[in-house]
């Protein structure tokens, strides 16, 4: 499913806070692992791959309002730990553009991080099973499975957070049944009831999110997105595997044979 498009203030505080705690712990551990080896190579790679995901997310397939994510491609290039850091950076930048809530950055980063890690693991598994010549199939299958799993995680999140204070709301002078505003001056300007709204008394009883309806919508529309993402990931990874196979099969941090520069290679 990639990043959650659930707005701020919908999920309950405990779930949002838990997302932040887990993400920050993961980020701390991933950073420690990243620092263990040549950090100078990892920092620019992280930045570039995060930017690549951001640029791809800005490409919308207009008729169905779907945008490419390239999260599995990024996972294959970065691996699970660097992927977790890249996921956090992508989510922070998206949130600053209003794309995904600010308070759900933790949950969003976790979701994309899982997507990158799972995509990386499944891709390697399928390459081993199917063989390198079928890299496109490996990419497509790993993308579909990854997105199916993360979509299920999203439905699980909504089920966990549905109802309670998350959906509590008051209407002010708005009538929730007719969605019309009560005229505050309806009883005359000088009146003890001037400021009485349409809803004297307590707030509306809290209603729960409809998880079944949400799951129905997500599982109906989702497969189309999974299929498109799988086709794009398969095409991109297939192309890169043909041109520069070590990137796909060894990751972007695999040893890159450097060509001679300047006069150094001239015999």
């Amino acid at each position: 499913m990639s990043h959650i498009h659930i707005p701020d203030g919908v999920l309950p505080l405990w779930l949002v806070a838990a997302g932040w705690v887990v993400t920050l712990a993961l980020l701390w551990y991933a950073s420690r692992r990243a620092r263990a080896a040549d950090v100078r190579r990892k920092v620019p790679l992280l930045g570039v791959v995060a930017a690549l995901v951001l640029v791809s997310m800005s490409t919308e397939i207009v008729p169905i309002a779907y945008h490419v994510n390239l999260t599995v491609v990024a996972g294959v290039l970065l691996g699970p730990w660097l992927g977790a850091i890249a996921a956090f950076i992508v989510v922070v930048m998206l949130a600053l553009l209003g794309h995904g809530g600010v308070t759900v950055i933790g949950l969003n980063a976790l979701m994309i991080g899982i997507e990158m890690a799972l995509g990386w693991g499944l891709f390697r598994l399928f390459v081993r099973v199917l063989g390198r010549p079928r890299v496109r199939w490996a990419a497509a299958l790993s993308t579909v499975l990854t997105l199916a799993v993360t979509t299920t995680l999203l439905v699980g999140l909504v089920a966990l957070g549905g109802g309670g204070a998350a959906t509590g709301r008051e209407t002010g002078a708005l009538d929730p049944n007719s969605l019309t505003f009560a005229n505050p001056f309806g009883a005359g300007v000088i009146s003890v009831n001037t400021l009485r709204g349409a809803e004297p008394g307590s707030a509306e009883p809290v209603a729960a999110l409809s998880v079944e309806r949400f799951a129905l919508v997500v599982y109906t529309l989702g497969p189309l997105g999974w299929l498109l993402e799988a086709l794009v990931s398969a095409a991109v990874l297939g192309y890169v595997a043909r041109v520069r196979p070590q990137l796909v099969f060894g990751g972007a941090l695999a040893a890159v044979p450097r060509g001679p520069t300047g006069d150094a290679g001239v015999s």
């Binding site: 707005p7 701020d8 794309h99 308070t103 709301r169 949400f214």
Partner: peptide, 24 residues
């Protein structure tokens, strides 16, 4: 997809736009 009623749905949308407007 998920709101229990129209008013909660309106609240989701207004909240989302307000938070996004601040960030933007």
């Amino acid at each position: 997809a998920a709101a229990p009623d129209l008013l909660s749905g309106a609240m989701f949308a207004v909240r989302a736009v307000t938070a996004a407007l601040g960030a933007i």
